[in-house]
Design a protein around this nucleic acid. Structure first.
Lengths: 138, 138
DNA sequence: CAAATAAACAGTAATTATTACTGTTCAATA
DNA sequence: TATTGAACAGTAATAATTACTGTTTATTTG
């Protein structure tokens, strides 16, 4: 039996107001697994609240992410960025301003050895995002 | 003095044809640092080849990435994805089909200790993409 | 309790990023 | 030199997201 914290409580903790749309949105999302897109979430929520607007879904997903109620798969979504640093390296990513700074592989420390991680998945390389707050944003 | 491998040679290695546009595009990109977007690259290339089309820039960036001439910052660009797995985990990302599978933190192995990584960057967490080829794509 | 106020909402327009399409040019080869 | 396919420029179309506008809702205050 999973202990599900009441939504109202979750909102209080993260300092956001409770609305009907947000509650349903949150519950529907909890019922999905994997890594759904806003459109996919919208399609599901629409079954419960047919009048809901796509814009509301976007706005509230954004609000949930901002307030820390849930996470996005990657901070790098949006437009494509090309990597001009040919050295093996990783990234410091600011969760506020989304800025990206390179850190070279060695300065990160030893990464786990590449081994069998999943059935048949052929590992090429690791890409590590160190997520946090950059100097400017603090 | 950096040894720059001639572009023709690079193309031969990666099995793509040499054209004037590609050569200039590549050289301009080498002269940029950080993590430029296609639009930013386009703006620069336009100074050398004013008649170049944005579509050509996109197509050739895509070709470079596909053929391994250069890399993109993240395989997760595009539409936003939400994380429904509340456990601490990381991702197996297929470089062909871009599919994402979760692996929990423990199965990855010990990550380096969080320590001072850069001036004033406050580390919150690590997000690791294990990049490779999934079973289906092999 | 009623009026005022602000936040949230639905619906839609606009913007941004990217891809698709079409006719033309180019480059290698027969 | 004629042929042929890939690459190109220019533009239309699509996808993802955000902005905008008028309405509804919830809360606070007189």
């Amino acid at each position: 039996m999973t202990l599900i914290k009441p939504f109202r409580e979750l909102c209080a903790e993260h300092g956001i107001a409770v609305t009907h749309q947000r509650q349903v949105l949150y519950e529907v999302m909890q019922g999905m697994d994997g890594h759904p897109s806003p459109e996919e979430i919208y399609a599901r929520v629409k079954r419960k609240i047919p009048s809901i607007s796509l814009a509301t879904v976007y706005k509230n997903i954004h609000l949930f992410v901002e307030s820390g109620v849930l996470r996005e798969v990657s901070l790098h979504h949006g437009s494509q960025r090309l990597e001009m640093n040919a050295e093996e390296h990783h990234h410091l990513v600011c969760s506020k301003c989304k800025s990206i700074e390179d850190i070279d592989e060695s300065s990160l420390g030893a990464l786990p050895k590449r081994r069998k991680l999943a059935d048949g998945f052929l590992v090429e390389r690791y890409s590590v995002d160190v997520i946090g707050i950059c100097a400017k944003c603090q």
